[in-house]
Amino acid sequence: MAFTLTNEFKAKADKLRAGYPRPDAALIPLLQELQKDRGFMAEEAMDALAAYLGLPYARVKAVVTFYTMFNRAPVGKYHLQVCRNISCHMAGAPGLLARLREKLAIEEGETTKDGLFTLSSVECLGACGAAPVMQVNEDYFEKLDEKKLDDLLEDMRHGRLRGMAR
């Protein structure tokens, strides 16, 4: 099935492009916008965007593969991104990751069968004073310990986390 950009997206795109003297500068914001729809970047979506912007497909693909926030496969409803860098490491990030692996029965990069959780380890999230830190979708959860992590998982399982943007 061919991927088509919605008129709503095109309207947003035109607005975003107007913010730059060269419209292709809006590529990254546009990709972010596009990812909101499906949660990941399909080749067809990149192709459609490339055609819409009049850019070579290879450039769009190169940008998508360069930046870590573009998901190249579907992710769960909650994308758990545990910081593994130095301050979080010292504050127990490896333990948190191990606990998540065990409780969710998945490895990093995998999604639970019910489609609820994807587990990733990520590099420094820039909140080292509140280590260890985990980003879930776009929200930060700081100063985590095992209890807080367990409660958070329960809240997510029961849909009690409100207003979380994807």
Partner: peptide, 27 residues
Amino acid sequence: CSEVTKTSELEVMERADHSFIDAKEGR
């Protein structure tokens, strides 16, 4: 490909030592 033929088929994908040259699948 970008400067001479201006067809821009190729790019370096990914980063660090796992980066590689690629073109569009099927093209």
